[in-house]
């Protein structure tokens, strides 16, 4: 029972970190540019498809991983330069409409190139199999690798934002866009860089997740909804909020699915306990979101009133 609980904790951490890769890009773009980007899930899909296609073509997962970063970043740059750039001064409704249209374009485009059937993408040989962790816990190496990669990216992102010149500009951009433009920072380039960074993170998440799940058209939208839940909980624009929010959502979702049916089984018959427990488990993150919004309307680390 103890090792099962430990395994579920690791699963929570893993799903939370993958969400963080998605949510951090989304929250950066919103924080710096004030843009709601619904097409963020499409960039995740682009990453997964690029990884699957290149891995199938070259036989190397690692080249696929590089391709996922590059393809998503490139798609991000193109989208920012040709479409998103025209939307910064529009209101949020226009942005939502335009980026929703982008979802359709990306989905149909991907279907046109790759077809409607899921692509094959498998774990590289070196990461297959399981390891025995302390507590006699058997855990898949690949999930462990994802956890480590997710942690590295999180640390890297905090260093980038906290310690580098680009990070200073990003933070300044979040605080006052007009002012840093007046101070001579090339704001167009900053926006493109931030957008590409967010896109690359989404693409990386797509490649990781595509390896354990299925690479198919429309895979980005369910994750996008979760990523929005995360940034609403964490506070829009806050990287720290995105991290805490992601872990909270990952933990709530995994543990809810695991524990709620058992909790109901203590006073209901097993069949209805599983049905009610799992129904409630799928609502749980939204209940948490509602609670956070009730207690702290601007999210856990939000600054705007």
């Amino acid at each position: 029972m103890f090792s099962l609980f430990l395994e579920q904790l690791l699963n929570s951490l893993q799903s939370g970190l993958m969400l963080f890769l998605m949510a951090s890009g989304l929250t950066l773009v919103f924080g710096v540019m004030g843009l709601i980007n619904l097409a963020h899930g499409s960039l995740y899909m682009v990453g997964a498809f690029a990884c699957a296609a290149v891995a199938a073509w070259t036989g190397s997962f690692w080249l696929g991983l590089v391709a996922s970063l590059m393809a998503a970043a490139l798609a991000g740059v193109l989208v920012e330069m040709f479409i998103i750039r025209r939307l910064y001064n529009r209101d949020h409704l226009d942005q939502v409409l335009a980026t929703f249209a982008l979802i359709l374009v990306f989905s149909e485009g991907t279907r046109w190139i790759f077809g409607s059937f899921p692509l094959f993408l498998s774990v590289p040989d070196i990461l297959t199999g399981t390891v025995i962790l302390p507590g006699a816990l058997e855990y898949p190496i690949f999930r462990l690798a994802i956890i480590i990669a997710g942690l590295l990216v999180a640390v890297g992102l905090f260093l980038l934002i906290g310690k580098t010149r680009l990070g200073v500009r990003i933070r300044a951009g979040e605080a006052d866009r007009g002012m840093i433009a007046a101070l001579g920072v090339n704001i167009d380039r900053l926006y493109t860089v931030v957008f590409a960074l967010g896109a690359a993170l989404a693409g990386l998440a797509g490649a990781f997740v595509g390896t354990t799940q299925s690479v198919q058209v429309g895979m980005g939208e369910p994750v996008l909804i979760l990523a929005f839940v995360v940034i609403v909980i964490g506070g829009i624009g806050s990287i720290k909020g995105a991290l805490i929010g992601s872990l909270l959502v990952g933990f709530t979702d995994t543990m809810g699915r695991f524990l709620l049916p058992h909790a109901f089984a203590t006073f209901l018959d097993p069949s209805s306990a599983t049905a009610i427990g799992s129904a409630l488990a799928s609502m749980l993150i939204y209940i948490v979101m509602a609670l956070v919004l009730f207690l702290r309307p601007s999210g856990l680390f939000g600054t705007e009133a």
Binding site: S214, R257, F258, P270, S278
Partner: peptide
């Protein structure tokens, strides 16, 4: 007996069980 969400894509929690 376990019910999952329709469209769910991560089964780590169920596989652990």
């Amino acid at each position: 007996e376990v019910y999952t969400k329709l469209g769910q894509t991560d089964y780590a929690a169920e596989i652990a069980q």
